[in-house]
Amino acid sequence: MKGVVLTRKQLAIPYAIFLILFVALPLIILIYYAFTDSAGRFSLDALLHFFSDTNTTGTLVYSLGVSFVVTAVCLLIAYPLAYILARGGLKNSSALLLLFIMPMWINFTLRITALKEILTLLEGNLAYYPFLNTVVGMTYDFLPFMVLPLYTSFLKQDKDLNEAAADLGAGALQVFLRVTLPLSVPGIISGVTMVFLPAMTNYVVLDMLYNSTYIMGSLIGSYFSAYDWHNGSLIAFVLLIIILAITLVTNRFGEEDDGKRGGMTV
């Protein structure tokens, strides 16, 4: 039988089609809507509206605040947790890890509904603590995304390095500060990126927790449900720019810190 030999270019075709259909095309549509008016003419109305409306700018600031707090809380919980799981020498560390990853297997709305019941039981009326509930809900939802990359980065670290540091006179704290922590930076970066960005847009958590507050995602949602494609698209576009900026900054930070080791992609 004569084998069919595919060149590298041919093999890339399916991926290219996928990329065009689901990444490039939507982006173009998004940008088109963001910079046109209802008659289809080029317009900066939506852009001007975004920055002149105190409601949107306020929401942007609030979203950034929520994202920041959620990311910080996730990192604070996940870092020691991942460290213990990867390095603690626990007998069933993989089973324990599964315990933290498993919520990802359960439907997201189901999880949040369950959380809502627990919070209602604790707080009585959910409306009293919108910010707290948002943070709790999102932390619960996003924690695995922070634990996993950190856990892998700890696992990847060569244990010889810790021994080498101790051999050269470093005590336990110094070993951590000078070797373990700097080498876990790529893990921290991917964790932060995977939590910070979704936390700005995932308004479903807020909605489901009867939340009256707005984050960027809620704004887009409300514009779109009112068939206002232009303002909604512009907000999405602004978020895209913010995401791009953050990615660039964290990537540079990571590169500086771990030299030319590479291996980390966001």
Binding site: D158, D160, L168
Partner: peptide
Amino acid sequence: PPNKRPINTVFQKYALFPH
């Protein structure tokens, strides 16, 4: 502990700090 000993080691796989 190793950090208190005036002894240093050259490791088999070098164990140089990549960062």
